[in-house]
Amino acid sequence: MKKLKRLSFNTKCKLCLLPSLAGTLLFFVIPYFRVLYYSVIDNQFRRNFVFLDNYIETVQNEYFLLALLNSLILIAVCVPVLIILALLISLFLSFGIRKLKALRASFVLPMVIPTAGIVLIWRTVFTDTSTPLPIYLLFIWKNIGICIVLLTAALTAADRSVYEAAKLDGAGSWTLHRKITLPMIAPTILFSVLLSIVNSFRIFKESYLFYGTNYPPDHSYTLQYFMNNNFLRLDYQSLATSAVLTSAVVFLIVLCGIFIQRRYNR
């Protein structure tokens, strides 16, 4: 105990990191190296080292490519729509009529509704499955809540005095928001974008229940289906390889996000 007291503040701070780091190492990092190992051997029993063969096979697999493409399209289409919609709604909720603030609950509720019941309703409303639109709408419906919570909070915290001053100078409400509000809440917007991308990968459960099959129409066959089917077939090599490839894609997306932010700040 005495020893602990003599430690410097900095060391103690570092010790505070330990529990979180230990858990992360134990459940994410160390097993991830196992996954990496699985991705370069030929099978679980023979364990021959095949280097990049699994990767070449996966990259040449047309279903993997289709799945990757669909996942990226989902992000490219839905995330901007989601963010713009959430931004408009939160702008209105913060700067519009006060009494309407209660409306926020109706946007936030979908976040916590269990999907199984909703999917039944979705199925009766959207009978046409020739486009991925139902899934896109389900995604936006489900994820707008968290973005609105984050964005309205940021807007509420934004400095109103700057805003009032600009208004007195005669700036229109559009210019006002574009020039003042937007930069103030930019970090929150970026955070919402990242979070939405994370959640776009989570839409599998809903999609799976909606189509009720492991092989949905081509336009909705996303990476999660590909991995789930590998999980069902217990094809560890393919699973490990696609997990590594997917994590590489996500890694690139995050780097892009950070890069954009650094540039924007300069």
């Binding site: 994410f28 097993p31 995050v254």
Partner: peptide, 26 residues
């Protein structure tokens, strides 16, 4: 910290496999 952000961004299908392996070994 960047590592934490990257980890946060990982889809469930990617993290579930390491989780499964880690739990199996323990």
């Amino acid at each position: 910290f960047t590592f934490y952000i990257v980890l946060m961004m990982m889809p469930l299908q990617v993290t579930v496999l390491p989780n499964y392996i880690g739990l199996r070994d323990l």
